[in-house]
Design a protein around this nucleic acid. Structure first.
Lengths: 209, 209
DNA sequence: AGCATTTTGTGAAAAAAATATCTATTATTT
DNA sequence: AAATAATAGATATTTTTTTCACAAAATGCT
């Protein structure tokens, strides 16, 4: 069990750093300073060092960090050195888009299963994944060793689907529905509310003027 | 110009409160306490009151808040009492899903235009919006009075599209590409990185076990 | 070799955010 | 009408997060 608590903001920044490092690596850059990273991703250099300090010492004073080495460290920290099997529930607009989104596979997220209740959608293909009926949820979670469930159903069905996912043994839930979900403490939950994002923009447009 | 700085977390929570209040309103509930809201959305009651206190006094001691009244206040605060015209650039999987997503229109976001560079996509219809070529960006922003631009293009094109949007007069950018964008200070920018969310889950799965 | 330069890692300080506590109002009950 | 209960709003406290600033290490230059 964890000893230190890592700020969520730190984890999110690590993800961003890793992407920047990947880019640098492809450009052939071998060494990078906290200041360079800071500039590249828009934070302070102290912030970069503080974030990394939670996990160890990865740099050399006076020199900086080896791009590839630091990248590998962060990938390991984020748990991206392993494959995660993912199930998406809901193959509407959003669910389909997520299923087809290439960015996930690149980071080790293996979308193995997509479910829906709509007869017209079941049986259709998203890339090479066939949409299956909700009934197979538990079977698939178990036989495909799925740890992460993505909830992309309407708000009204969200809690029910979540309960089913948890009962089937999923360990983490990414919720795209605009509904506050109840999950047991040991299940990791994250909410992505697309409207909220636009609304924060709207607020700032009104408030800053 | 703003005098107090409002925490972004507060703004996001207001958005969540508003949705909960809307739900309560439909259920016929007339009055609600900060404790009720807190329970409904999973925060503390003090947090609810604190968030609201940034903007005024909306309740009655010993009684609570009138649901409809508070809802209207929050909608006003968030700037959702007006229509915002939105352009989506990039009609790939994600851009299309966003264009078709009903949740935006419900909150006053009017997606008027969708652009892409791909010949095969231009001319196709998303709902009742026809995808147009990138060339019309500036014209459309001006003639349709577009304030919000959504960047849903690959990372490599993101900054270029952003620059064009800003040059055309857009005031806020919602960025779905995994790229750190540079924008002038007066332009409101928000990043939504779908992979980051899965990666935070992954981190927690590894770290909490 | 010594000195200047760079840059990390870190403890301390500051700022921001969340939580807890207290006070004032309103409504209700006795 | 007084006492009690509920609850917002304000204030104080605590916790968390960020920023600052500097000693320690590594490199390179003279």
């Amino acid at each position: 069990m964890k000893v230190f608590k890592i700020p969520e903001a730190t984890v999110m920044r690590l993800s961003v750093y890793s992407r920047y490092l990947y880019q640098l690596g492809r450009e052939g850059v071998e060494t990078v300073s906290s200041g360079d990273i800071a500039k590249g991703v828009g934070v302070s250099s102290a912030q970069v060092r503080k974030d990394l300090a939670y996990f160890g010492e990865f740099g050399t004073r006076g020199v900086g960090y080896k791009v590839e080495e630091l990248y590998n460290h962060i990938i390991k920290i984020l748990g991206l050195d392993q494959q995660w099997n993912v199930m998406i529930v809901g193959a509407g607009k959003l669910g389909s888009a997520l299923a087809l989104y290439q960015g996930f596979a690149e980071r080790g997220f293996n979308i193995t299963t997509v479910l829906d209740v709509d007869e017209n959608i079941i049986g259709t293909k998203l890339g090479n994944i066939e949409v299956e009926p909700l009934e197979v949820l538990e079977t698939r979670v178990k036989e495909r060793n799925i740890t992460i469930g993505v909830v992309a159903v309407p708000a009204s069905a969200a809690q029910d689907v979540t309960d089913q996912l948890i009962k089937a043994g999923v360990k983490a839930i990414l919720n795209f529905s605009p509904r506050v979900l109840k999950v047991p403490r040991e299940v990791v939950l994250r909410n992505v509310d697309l409207s909220v994002n636009l609304e924060v923009l709207s607020f700032n447009l009104v408030f800053n003027s």
